[in-house]
């Protein structure tokens, strides 16, 4: 069970009479000036993107970039000012309260930065909350909540209360709660940024594992580039409410759309992200190469031993077709350089 989302020309303006901003000349004003003139804050500005079924779609931006607002607009936890959102082809903004509640109850679940657990309920009842409000009986929801706790590795903690758990464990509860309703789409709002680095890494691994196991569509908000690169099939970079670039991790690192993104990815070890495609050159006429070619999708770092050991350049292939060659000369700049590269 997977889900798709499309978002078109989405706006969210906070402040007095927000509807007067969209579609007028005010819309093109820079943030600060808009605030000066109208007292309004445009948190999300004309954002459009599409998320494919089964994809992990990461929205990345600094604090204040509007990413948390954006994700809340998807299920109208924050009511958008204008634009279209559709989930599985159904227009979210057209839904009435009941339909919207059904969407939230059955199809979309969310995990929050500060967990949002209910301190007066046991872990088991927290996980079962979503089922409880759907009217599912006690035995059934305890059974399913128990399964979810097993899934996130919290066996044996059923009867504890949130305050007795560590932050990482609390977020596992939040995750289990979201999974318990078996949604096709999971939204994560900076779920791990309140956690210690080691625990954060564990949790990221956990998310990847769950994604592999249960295969849901994931929308993941983060301000942490490393996290975005680790998890994202595609990454959307948001700045001052506007979408700056949408692309694979490779696209972002290899071809940042502008200086903002470039600045963002500057410290990323390129060889960890880029593939050979980004450093290969055209074969010279009559050039002799190593016998074993490398696929173009190989990450540079993984190819380093091969290329350095090779006496001759190595062919880069896409399927059977040779698309270029790499040698030590091409390799070294990628390992040391932070300069912008363009695909050959």
């Amino acid at each position: 069970m997977t889900s798709t989302i499309t978002v078109e020309h989405l706006w969210k303006v906070f402040g007095p009479k927000p509807e007067r901003v969209v579609g007028t000349e005010l819309a093109s004003l820079p943030r600060a000036e808009l605030r000066e003139r109208t007292g309004c804050l445009a948190a999300v500005r004309d954002v459009s993107f599409a998320v494919e079924a089964g994809e992990v779609f990461v929205v990345m931006g600094l604090s204040g970039s509007g990413k948390s607002t954006l994700v809340r607009c998807l299920t109208r936890l924050i009511e958008p000012t204008s634009g279209e959102i559709s989930i599985d082809g159904e227009a979210v903004r057209a839904m009435n309260a009941r339909r919207l509640r059904d969407l939230r109850r059955h199809r979309v679940a969310m995990v929050f930065q500060h967990f949002g657990l209910l301190p007066h309920r046991s872990v088991l009842d927290n996980v079962g909350y979503g089922l409880e409000i759907q009217g599912i009986g006690r035995a059934e929801r305890h059974r399913r909540a128990g399964e979810m706790l097993t899934l996130v590795g919290l066996d044996g903690h059923e009867n504890q209360y949130p305050e007795q758990l560590s932050g990482g464990m609390q977020q596992r509860v939040g995750l289990a709660r979201a999974l318990a309703i078996d949604p096709a789409l999971l939204l994560f709002d900076e779920p791990f940024s309140a956690l210690d680095p080691l625990i954060r890494r564990d949790m990221q691994t956990e998310v990847r594992r769950l994604h592999a196991e249960v295969g849901k569509t994931l929308v993941f908000i983060t301000h942490d580039l490393a996290e975005a690169l680790t998890l994202g099939d595609r990454i959307a970079v948001l700045r001052d409410g506007e979408l700056v670039q949408v692309g694979t991790p490779e696209d972002l690192v290899g071809a940042p759309a502008d200086d903002y993104v470039a600045d963002f990815v500057r410290d990323v070890p390129r060889s960890d992200v880029l593939t050979l495609r980004w450093i290969m050159r055209d074969p010279l006429a009559g050039e002799t190469c190593e016998d074993q070619p490398l696929p173009a999708t190989t990450v540079i770092r993984d190819a380093v031993p091969r290329i350095l050991r090779a006496k001759l350049p190595v062919q880069v292939v896409e399927g059977d077709r040779v698309v270029g060659v790499v040698d030590a000369d091409r390799l070294l700049p990628a390992l040391i350089s932070h300069h912008r590269q363009v695909p050959a």
Partner: peptide, 29 residues
Amino acid sequence: VSPTSVEAATALGSTGRQLLTKVRLPMAR
């Protein structure tokens, strides 16, 4: 009452009444 908890419960599709009886009142107890 922590707005995050209210938001989380809303995101799971709680009705206004459910929010009151299952989240707000117990948390304000």
